[in-house]
Amino acid sequence: MKVAVIGIGKMGMLHAGIMNGLQDVELCAISDNSKFLLGFAKSIKGIPGYDDYQKMLDKEKPDAAVLATPIFLHVPMATECVNRDIPFFLEKPLSLRSGEADALVQQVEQKNLTSMVGYMMRYVETFAKAKEIIDSGVLGKLITFNSSIYVAQLFKTGKGWRYSKAEAGGGVVMAQATHLIDLLKWYFGEVNSVSAHTKSFYSEEVEDFAHAHFEFSSGISGWLDSSWSVRHHRLLEVTININAENGNLSVSDDEVRFFLDKAAGDYPAGWTQFRIPELFKGVEIDLGGPQYTKQDVDFLNAVREGRTVGTDIKNAQYIQKLVDAIYDSAEQNGQPVRM
């Protein structure tokens, strides 16, 4: 299987390495606007490099493409892939505003093309285990939740496209909270209404802090808190706490633990805990964490089998609609926005 990667930044380099390291997959070409990077890769690996990605798609005819470029380029680049019937993996988030992707989503669905957007938290063992427990119904009716996503990243004005409103569409909500929003949607389903507040302190154009309240159609409601300017979080850390009829559940990158009033399903009354060491399963090649490999393998298998995945472009557009709602609500000082 031949894979081409567009955008050799941090994430493009990672996906290229993982996919090239998998059996029966070959990195066939790369595209970037840095001629230096292309020259370096050519010298060291002899791999064809293109500064024009459309030319690369036409000439190399890859079986799948990875798009890891700044957000404002996602929709136009993915559209070029769809025009050529090339399945694509796109780094998250999907687009600046959700409406921008309408035609693209429609086209992908019409052509029944495999697409994936990089919401990789679903492939982290603890979050996947929590999904299994929630879906099993042992917690009973879900009532409320609170959740957070924090990292100590920005304590002065940031540089680069990630902190530009025009190129990134927003700040911490777009870059990081979308991971958590995807998990919440995966766990709880569709949303009825959103209200939110955002705050900028370090950044000039985008938000550094966000707090949003969600009412889900399934009846559960709760909030998320998000910032990239919280000290003492060396790595991106996600926590979700759920209160339910028959107990409560907490999940983070480190562990999932839950308490049941009454025994249910396979689980006893009282506490049950799963920590990451016992949930860990080795992968064929590990670059930056097994979740990335599991994600990429799922994508490539879906391409081989011509099927869709849970984190497809339609799901990603729904996340984008929730992001739009967060920004719209924040602009109206927290007025609820109905979905």
Partner: peptide, 15 residues
């Protein structure tokens, strides 16, 4: 390991 494993994935052991 971030570098080592990236080099492994890209399969450029000359590095």
């Amino acid at each position: 390991d971030v570098m080592t494993d990236l080099i492994l994935g890209w399969d450029v052991p000359e590095v």
